[in-house]
């Protein structure tokens, strides 16, 4: 069975879920550019692209975890909280004379450890991941508040501030005068995982697991192992995101990453990853996030009322679903 030539290639591209999304992205860019120039702003510029990409960084880490998990038919609702916890622990370490590289490492390890905990309760007790991670979210949040209050006389939970030049640089310095180090780090890690999912045996196993966990198990795919790995990835990515966020803000913030969770999940869904269908990949999720963030930046460039922006944000998801619906309808008619 040979792959068809160029005519067939385009037809295949058309079939892929990503195609209408790329169209949506292009339409978005065009609309915003025209709109912005209409009111005297500039949209289509390097600065905007910079804003879009830089804003995406933290959500992107969470999308890696969310996307992989969704492919296997699971989810992690505790990711953003784990990330915030990692940031708090990192900040706490720095304020207690731990060298910066250790503090960051500890942050990431915190993420991995909670990922392991999630994996344990989900594989051992076979909980539906929705409930289990929902519960863990509360547990981690409570622990985080507690951790932030250690050492304070009034034992109240607060953000932990610190100053560390190296970490500040990591979180804020720009390369090539427009794109931050964070962005580069994120892109590298993202591409690595996108390849892992699309082209390695790990990715294949995840997709088969998502398609039919029982059959996968009976065909020798180690479901417990893969799920554990997936949650470790989710927790680890959250840990990285939280630690980097702390670097950037020079603060272990209790509210960190709260919107990133939604963006991450929505981006993945928008990008065509269906729950447990084993369809889709991280590439699509990236486009999904681009669409979302282009939107947010576009809205602010065009000075749109924040309420309208919120409304349109929600509508984006609906539009993505509608696109999917029309594509399925067309496919069934053929």
């Amino acid at each position: 069975m040979t792959k068809s030539k160029s005519g067939g290639f385009f037809k295949e591209l058309l079939q892929k879920k990503v195609f209408p999304l790329i169209i949506l992205l292009i339409v978005e860019i065009v609309v915003f550019s025209l709109w912005a120039s209409g009111i005297g702003s500039k949209f289509f510029a390097i600065t905007t692209i910079r804003n879009i990409l830089n804003n995406m960084v933290f959500a992107a880490f969470l999308t890696i975890g969310a996307g992989c998990l969704m492919l296997s038919g699971n989810m992690d609702l505790s990711a953003s909280t784990i990330g915030a916890m990692a940031g708090v622990v990192c900040a706490w370490s720095v304020t207690h004379s731990v060298p910066w590289y250790f503090a960051m490492l500890i942050g990431i390890i915190v993420g991995i450890l909670f990922g392991l905990l999630n994996a344990f309760i989900i594989t051992k007790f076979r909980f539906p991941s929705f409930i289990a991670t929902l519960g863990m979210s509360s547990v981690v949040r409570g622990l985080m508040y507690f951790a932030s209050s250690i050492g304070k006389e009034d034992a109240s939970a607060q953000n932990i501030n610190f100053t560390n030049d190296i970490m500040y640089d990591i979180g804020n310095k720009k390369l090539f005068s427009e794109f931050t180090i964070l962005l580069v780090i994120m892109l590298i890690i993202y591409i690595i995982f996108a390849i892992l999912v699309a082209r390695t045996k790990f990715g294949t196993k995840v997709k088969m697991l998502g398609g039919n966990p029982i059959a996968a198990n009976l065909a020798g795919i180690n479901s417990k192992g893969i799920i554990t790995l997936l949650y470790v990835i989710s927790g680890g990515m959250a840990g990285i995101a939280g630690t980097l966020f702390a670097c950037k803000m020079q603060q272990g913030s209790l509210q960190a990453l709260s919107t990133a969770q939604f963006t991450g999940l929505t981006g993945a869904i928008l990008g065509g990853i269906s729950f447990g269908g084993g369809e889709g990949g991280l590439g699509g999720a990236f486009v999904g996030m681009l669409i979302l963030n282009t939107f947010t930046v576009g809205m602010s460039v065009c000075n749109v009322n924040s309420n309208l922006a919120t409304i349109f944000n929600g509508l984006l998801l609906i539009i993505a679903l509608a696109l999917d619906f029309f594509r399925q309808a067309r496919r069934n008619k053929v």
């Binding site: 929505t266 919120t310 509508l315 984006l316 609906i318």
Partner: peptide, 8 residues
């Protein structure tokens, strides 16, 4: 999705 719409 609609959640955002209603909030907005």
């Amino acid at each position: 999705g609609m959640s955002s719409v209603y909030t907005g």
